[in-house]
Amino acid sequence: MLFLPAAALCCLCSVGENVSFSCGGTEQCDSRAPYVLWYQKKEKETFKVILDIHKTNGDIDKRYGHPQKDDFSVVNKQNSCELKIEKVKPDHSATYYCSCYKLAPHSEK
């Protein structure tokens, strides 16, 4: 797994607003690691996967069981990927990370 330099902090000062976080360097997510995963990290908690997007076909997968998964959307761009939150809530306060990911052979989502 390759973590990309795109951590961002969502804070309470944005409550009620729309925010987006950009994950640059996703050109590194090539055919060998075509998925960009987004994670949420709250203080004193482990990383939680929110969703992933397939860089080639744009398919989005939210089946990771994140409790706020429906609050998030993602947009795939040529050299970046954006995680969006519409109407930020206090519970969204966290640090967000992205990474490239390659599925193991013979694995299915």
Score class of each variant (00 low, 15 high):
Leu2Ile: 14
Leu4Trp: 03
Ala6Glu: 05
Ala7His: 06
Ala7Gly: 12
Leu9Cys: 07
Cys11Met: 07
Leu12Gly: 14
Leu12Val: 14
Ser14Tyr: 11
Val15Lys: 06
Gly16Tyr: 06
Glu17Tyr: 06
Glu17Asn: 12
Ser22His: 03
Cys23Glu: 05
Cys23Arg: 02
Gly24Ala: 08
Gly24Ile: 05
Thr26Met: 04
Gln28Asp: 04
Cys29Ser: 04
Cys29Ile: 11
Ser31Cys: 07
Arg32His: 03
Pro34Asp: 12
Pro34Lys: 05
Pro34Phe: 06
Tyr35Ala: 09
Tyr35Ser: 05
Tyr35Arg: 06
Val36Gly: 03
Leu37Ala: 13
Leu37Lys: 11
Trp38Arg: 00
Tyr39Val: 04
Gln40Phe: 06
Glu43Phe: 14
Lys44Trp: 00
Lys44Gly: 01
Lys44Thr: 13
Glu45Lys: 05
Lys48Gly: 06
Asp52Arg: 15
Asp52Tyr: 11
Ile53Tyr: 02
His54Asn: 14
Lys55Ser: 05
Gly58Glu: 03
Asp59Arg: 13
Asp59Asn: 15
Ile60Ser: 02
Lys62Met: 04
Tyr64Thr: 04
Tyr64Cys: 04
Tyr64Arg: 02
Gly65Lys: 04
Pro67Trp: 07
Pro67Glu: 12
Gln68Met: 10
Gln68Phe: 10
Asp70Phe: 06
Asp71Ser: 11
Ser73Ala: 07
Val74Thr: 07
Asn76Gln: 06
Asn79Trp: 09
Asn79Ala: 13
Cys81Asn: 04
Cys81Phe: 02
Glu82Tyr: 14
Lys84Arg: 08
Glu86Pro: 03
Lys87Ile: 06
Val88Lys: 01
Lys89Cys: 09
Pro90Val: 01
Asp91Ala: 10
Tyr96Asp: 00
Cys98Tyr: 01
Ser99Lys: 05
Cys100Glu: 01
Lys102Leu: 11
Pro105Phe: 04
His106Arg: 13
His106Cys: 02
Glu108Gly: 10
